[in-house]
Each structure stands twice: as C-alpha cells, then as structure tokens.
C-alpha cells in the first residue's frame, strides 16, 4: 500500500495542535509556579505568626514562673545548704 503524503490542511492541523499543546503546557507551568509562590508566602506568614506567639508565650512563662531558691549557687548539695540558711533566717 503506497503511503499518501499529508495534504496541506493536515499539516496545518498538526501545527495548530502542537501549538495549542505547547501553550497549554506553558500555562500549566505558570499556574504551578504561581501556586508554589503563594504556598511559600503562606508558609512564611504562618511561621512568622507562630514565632511571635512562641516568643510571647516564652516571655509569659518566664514572667509568671518564680525562680526557685538556690537555683544559682556554687554547691552541689543544694538541699542541705538551703536548709541551713533557712534555719538561720527563721531563728535569727
């Protein structure tokens, strides 16, 4: 069977189809890029808000928690030392 060459309208149709496919792919890529950008902006905004809330929480905890007696001292035997100092204070 002899191969028939494409007629001109066939080639034009093929070119039009390829052009349309390329345009669709370009459009899809742009949409993907746009979505990725928006997603990144949303994530940055979210974590910025979370960071601010976390700092406020940490400041609140530090402000509301009193430092226990003897937290800062040189001795490892904290309980015995504090007991002695408390006895002195109570019986001075």
């Amino acid at each position: 069977m002899q191969h028939q060459p494409h007629s001109t309208p066939d080639i034009e149709l093929l070119v039009a189809r390829r052009t349309r496919q390329a345009a669709e792919q370009r459009l899809l890529a742009e949409v993907d890029a746009g979505y990725g950008h928006r997603s990144l902006v949303a994530a940055v905004r979210h974590y910025a808000v979370v960071a601010v809330v976390a700092v406020v929480l940490a400041a609140g905890v530090i402000a509301c928690t009193s430092v226990p007696d003897g937290r800062d001292m040189t001795s490892a035997d904290r309980a015995a030392v504090l007991s002695d100092v408390n006895y002195v204070i109570d019986n001075l």
């Binding site: 929480l57 905890v61 928690t65």
Partner: peptide, 21 residues
C-alpha cells in the same frame, strides 16, 4: 515548636545552675 519553646522557657527558669567563682 510551641511545646519546645514553652519547655525551653520553663527549663531556663527552673533548671539549677552552678555559679562560676
């Protein structure tokens, strides 16, 4: 992240510290 920050703040406040001379 919030749990870690709260834990860190509490630890900073309560953890016994040995003073340097």
């Amino acid at each position: 992240l919030c749990v870690a920050v709260l834990g860190g703040a509490l630890a900073f406040r309560l953890w016994p510290r040995t003073l340097s001379p």
